[in-house]
Protein backbone atom coordinates (compact mmCIF):
# COMPACT_ATOMS: atom_id res chain seq x y z
CA UNK A 1 0.00 0.00 0.00
CA UNK A 2 3.02 2.27 0.24
CA UNK A 3 2.56 3.78 -3.19
CA UNK A 4 -0.83 5.08 -2.08
CA UNK A 5 0.70 6.83 0.90
CA UNK A 6 3.40 8.15 -1.43
CA UNK A 7 0.64 9.64 -3.59
CA UNK A 8 -1.02 11.20 -0.55
CA UNK A 9 2.27 12.61 0.71
CA UNK A 10 3.26 13.96 -2.69
CA UNK A 11 -0.17 15.58 -3.06
CA UNK A 12 0.28 17.30 0.29
CA UNK A 13 3.53 18.78 -0.97
CA UNK A 14 1.73 20.08 -4.07
CA UNK A 15 3.78 18.06 -6.55
CA UNK A 16 1.40 17.73 -9.50
CA UNK A 17 3.74 15.94 -11.91
CA UNK A 18 4.91 13.54 -9.23
CA UNK A 19 1.33 12.70 -8.24
CA UNK A 20 0.40 12.01 -11.87
CA UNK A 21 3.42 9.79 -12.35
CA UNK A 22 2.77 7.87 -9.12
CA UNK A 23 -0.88 7.37 -10.08
CA UNK A 24 0.21 6.00 -13.46
CA UNK A 25 2.68 3.71 -11.74
CA UNK A 26 0.04 2.46 -9.31
CA UNK A 27 -2.32 1.71 -12.22
CA UNK A 28 0.48 -0.11 -14.05
CA UNK A 29 1.08 -2.14 -10.90
CA UNK A 30 -2.52 -3.27 -11.15
CA UNK A 31 -3.93 -1.13 -8.34
CA UNK A 32 -7.62 -0.46 -8.48
CA UNK A 33 -8.65 3.09 -9.48
CA UNK A 34 -11.06 3.28 -6.55
CA UNK A 35 -8.28 2.30 -4.14
CA UNK A 36 -5.96 4.94 -5.59
CA UNK A 37 -8.70 7.55 -5.37
CA UNK A 38 -9.45 6.81 -1.72
CA UNK A 39 -6.07 5.72 -0.41
CA UNK A 40 -4.11 8.34 -2.34
CA UNK A 41 -5.99 11.43 -3.45
CA UNK A 42 -8.87 11.59 -0.98
CA UNK A 43 -6.60 10.64 1.92
CA UNK A 44 -4.09 13.33 0.93
CA UNK A 45 -6.70 16.05 0.50
CA UNK A 46 -8.24 15.07 3.83
CA UNK A 47 -4.97 15.87 5.56
CA UNK A 48 -4.60 19.10 3.60
CA UNK A 49 -8.13 20.17 4.58
CA UNK A 50 -7.47 19.43 8.23
CA UNK A 51 -4.14 21.25 8.24
CA UNK A 52 -5.70 24.29 6.57
CA UNK A 53 -8.54 24.29 9.07
CA UNK A 54 -5.97 24.43 11.88
CA UNK A 55 -3.98 27.00 9.86
CA UNK A 56 -0.89 24.81 9.99
CA UNK A 57 -0.85 25.52 6.25
CA UNK A 58 -2.39 28.37 4.26
CA UNK A 59 -4.31 29.03 1.08
CA UNK A 60 -1.29 28.83 -1.27
CA UNK A 61 -0.43 25.34 0.03
CA UNK A 62 -4.03 24.22 -0.44
CA UNK A 63 -4.14 25.55 -4.00
CA UNK A 64 -0.93 23.75 -4.94
CA UNK A 65 -2.18 20.52 -3.34
CA UNK A 66 -5.44 20.92 -5.26
CA UNK A 67 -3.55 21.19 -8.51
CA UNK A 68 -1.77 17.95 -7.69
CA UNK A 69 -5.08 16.32 -6.75
CA UNK A 70 -6.65 17.31 -10.06
CA UNK A 71 -3.62 15.96 -11.93
CA UNK A 72 -4.25 12.55 -10.35
CA UNK A 73 -8.02 12.77 -10.66
CA UNK A 74 -7.79 13.43 -14.41
CA UNK A 75 -6.13 10.03 -14.83
CA UNK A 76 -8.60 8.18 -12.64
CA UNK A 77 -11.88 9.73 -13.76
CA UNK A 78 -12.16 7.96 -17.13
CA UNK A 79 -11.46 4.61 -15.45
CA UNK A 80 -13.98 5.23 -12.68
CA UNK A 81 -16.60 6.27 -15.22
CA UNK A 82 -15.91 3.23 -17.42
CA UNK A 83 -16.37 0.91 -14.47
CA UNK A 84 -19.53 2.69 -13.45
CA UNK A 85 -18.13 3.47 -9.99
CA UNK A 86 -20.54 5.81 -8.22
CA UNK A 87 -19.10 9.07 -6.91
CA UNK A 88 -19.75 10.31 -3.38
CA UNK A 89 -22.58 12.34 -4.91
CA UNK A 90 -23.12 15.44 -7.02
CA UNK A 91 -23.02 18.94 -5.57
CA UNK A 92 -23.87 22.19 -7.35
CA UNK A 93 -21.96 25.16 -5.94
CA UNK A 94 -21.70 28.87 -6.67
CA UNK A 95 -21.57 32.38 -5.22
CA UNK A 96 -25.05 33.88 -5.04
CA UNK A 97 -26.43 36.58 -7.29
CA UNK A 98 -24.69 39.89 -6.73
CA UNK A 99 -21.62 38.33 -5.15
CA UNK A 100 -18.48 38.15 -7.25
CA UNK A 101 -16.23 36.70 -4.57
CA UNK A 102 -15.17 33.20 -5.44
CA UNK A 103 -12.02 32.26 -3.54
CA UNK A 104 -13.88 30.66 -0.62
CA UNK A 105 -16.33 28.97 -2.94
CA UNK A 106 -13.48 27.60 -5.06
CA UNK A 107 -11.85 26.23 -1.95
CA UNK A 108 -15.01 24.37 -0.98
CA UNK A 109 -15.19 22.99 -4.54
CA UNK A 110 -11.62 21.74 -4.24
CA UNK A 111 -12.31 20.03 -0.93
CA UNK A 112 -15.51 18.44 -2.23
CA UNK A 113 -13.73 17.13 -5.32
CA UNK A 114 -10.96 15.94 -3.02
CA UNK A 115 -13.56 14.03 -1.02
CA UNK A 116 -14.82 12.21 -4.10
CA UNK A 117 -17.82 14.35 -5.02
CA UNK A 118 -18.77 15.40 -8.52
CA UNK A 119 -18.71 19.19 -8.32
CA UNK A 120 -20.72 21.39 -10.67
CA UNK A 121 -19.31 24.88 -10.14
CA UNK A 122 -21.63 27.55 -11.57
CA UNK A 123 -19.16 30.35 -10.78
CA UNK A 124 -20.14 33.64 -9.14
CA UNK A 125 -23.14 35.98 -9.40
CA UNK A 126 -25.44 32.98 -9.92
CA UNK A 127 -29.23 33.51 -10.07
CA UNK A 128 -31.40 31.31 -7.80
CA UNK A 129 -33.07 29.65 -10.81
CA UNK A 130 -29.70 28.55 -12.17
CA UNK A 131 -28.80 26.77 -8.94
CA UNK A 132 -32.05 24.85 -8.88
CA UNK A 133 -32.13 24.13 -12.62
CA UNK A 134 -28.54 22.85 -12.55
CA UNK A 135 -29.24 20.65 -9.52
CA UNK A 136 -32.18 19.09 -11.36
CA UNK A 137 -30.32 18.70 -14.66
CA UNK A 138 -27.26 17.15 -13.06
CA UNK A 139 -29.07 15.03 -10.51
CA UNK A 140 -27.39 16.83 -7.60
CA UNK A 141 -28.63 16.16 -4.08
CA UNK A 142 -26.94 19.20 -2.56
CA UNK A 143 -26.67 22.88 -3.50
CA UNK A 144 -23.82 24.82 -1.88
CA UNK A 145 -24.27 28.60 -1.66
CA UNK A 146 -21.47 31.05 -0.96
CA UNK A 147 -21.72 34.75 -0.09
CA UNK A 148 -19.01 37.00 1.30
CA UNK A 149 -21.06 40.16 1.62
CA UNK A 150 -23.71 40.84 4.23
CA UNK A 151 -25.64 42.50 1.42
CA UNK A 152 -25.75 39.37 -0.74
CA UNK A 153 -26.43 36.89 2.06
CA UNK A 154 -30.22 37.47 1.87
CA UNK A 155 -30.14 36.06 -1.69
CA UNK A 156 -29.40 32.66 -0.12
CA UNK A 157 -32.94 32.65 1.23
CA UNK A 158 -34.32 33.06 -2.30
CA UNK A 159 -32.63 29.80 -3.32
CA UNK A 160 -33.95 27.95 -0.27
CA UNK A 161 -37.44 29.23 -1.03
CA UNK A 162 -37.20 28.32 -4.70
CA UNK A 163 -36.26 24.73 -3.82
CA UNK A 164 -39.36 24.61 -1.61
CA UNK A 165 -41.60 26.31 -4.16
CA UNK A 166 -40.70 23.61 -6.66
CA UNK A 167 -41.35 20.89 -4.09
CA UNK A 168 -37.75 19.68 -4.22
CA UNK A 169 -36.83 20.07 -0.54
CA UNK A 170 -36.77 16.30 0.05
CA UNK A 171 -34.45 15.66 -2.90
CA UNK A 172 -32.21 18.72 -2.82
CA UNK A 173 -30.56 20.01 0.35
CA UNK A 174 -29.06 23.48 0.66
CA UNK A 175 -25.85 24.27 2.55
CA UNK A 176 -24.58 27.84 3.02
CA UNK A 177 -21.21 29.34 3.84
CA UNK A 178 -19.12 32.52 3.70
CA UNK A 179 -17.16 34.82 5.99
CA UNK A 180 -20.20 36.37 7.69
CA UNK A 181 -22.51 33.35 7.38
CA UNK A 182 -23.27 31.45 10.60
CA UNK A 183 -25.27 28.53 11.89
CA UNK A 184 -27.87 30.95 13.19
CA UNK A 185 -28.15 32.53 9.73
CA UNK A 186 -28.56 29.13 8.10
CA UNK A 187 -31.39 28.30 10.51
CA UNK A 188 -32.99 31.68 10.06
CA UNK A 189 -33.26 31.30 6.28
CA UNK A 190 -34.25 27.63 6.47
CA UNK A 191 -31.09 26.17 4.91
CA UNK A 192 -30.32 22.54 5.71
CA UNK A 193 -26.75 23.10 6.86
CA UNK A 194 -23.95 25.60 7.40
CA UNK A 195 -20.31 25.02 6.54
CA UNK A 196 -18.05 26.96 8.89
CA UNK A 197 -15.03 26.32 6.66
CA UNK A 198 -14.18 24.16 3.66
CA UNK A 199 -13.44 21.07 5.75
CA UNK A 200 -16.65 21.30 7.75
CA UNK A 201 -18.58 21.98 4.53
CA UNK A 202 -17.39 18.62 3.23
CA UNK A 203 -18.51 16.87 6.44
CA UNK A 204 -21.93 18.49 6.26
CA UNK A 205 -22.34 17.76 2.54
CA UNK A 206 -21.45 14.12 3.23
CA UNK A 207 -24.18 13.95 5.85
CA UNK A 208 -26.70 15.67 3.58
CA UNK A 209 -25.86 13.44 0.61
CA UNK A 210 -26.40 10.38 2.82
CA UNK A 211 -29.87 11.53 3.82
CA UNK A 212 -32.19 9.22 1.85
CA UNK A 213 -33.87 10.97 -1.04
Amino acid sequence: MSILSDIAASLQRGEDEEVASLVRQALDDGQDAVAILHGGLIAGMGVVGEQFREREIFLPDVLLAARAMYAGLALLKPLLAKDGVPTAGTVVIGSVRGDLHDIGKNLVGIMLAGAGFDVVDLGSDVAPERFVDAACDRGASVIGLSALLTTTMPVMKDVVELVRARGLQDRIKVIVGGAAVSDAWARQIGADAYGYDAASAVERVRALARTPA
Binding site: E54, R55, E56, I57, F58, L59, D61
Partner: peptide
Amino acid sequence: FETTRRGFFTVMG
Protein backbone atom coordinates in the same frame (compact mmCIF):
# COMPACT_ATOMS: atom_id res chain seq x y z
CA PHE B 1 -4.97 38.89 9.71
CA GLU B 2 -6.64 35.87 11.28
CA THR B 3 -5.92 34.48 14.72
CA THR B 4 -4.24 31.07 14.57
CA ARG B 5 -2.64 28.91 17.23
CA ARG B 6 0.76 30.08 16.04
CA GLY B 7 -0.17 33.76 16.01
CA PHE B 8 -1.56 36.18 13.47
CA PHE B 9 -1.43 35.26 9.80
CA THR B 10 -3.33 36.30 6.69
CA VAL B 11 -5.23 33.55 4.90
CA MET B 12 -2.33 33.51 2.45
CA GLY B 13 0.04 32.71 5.32
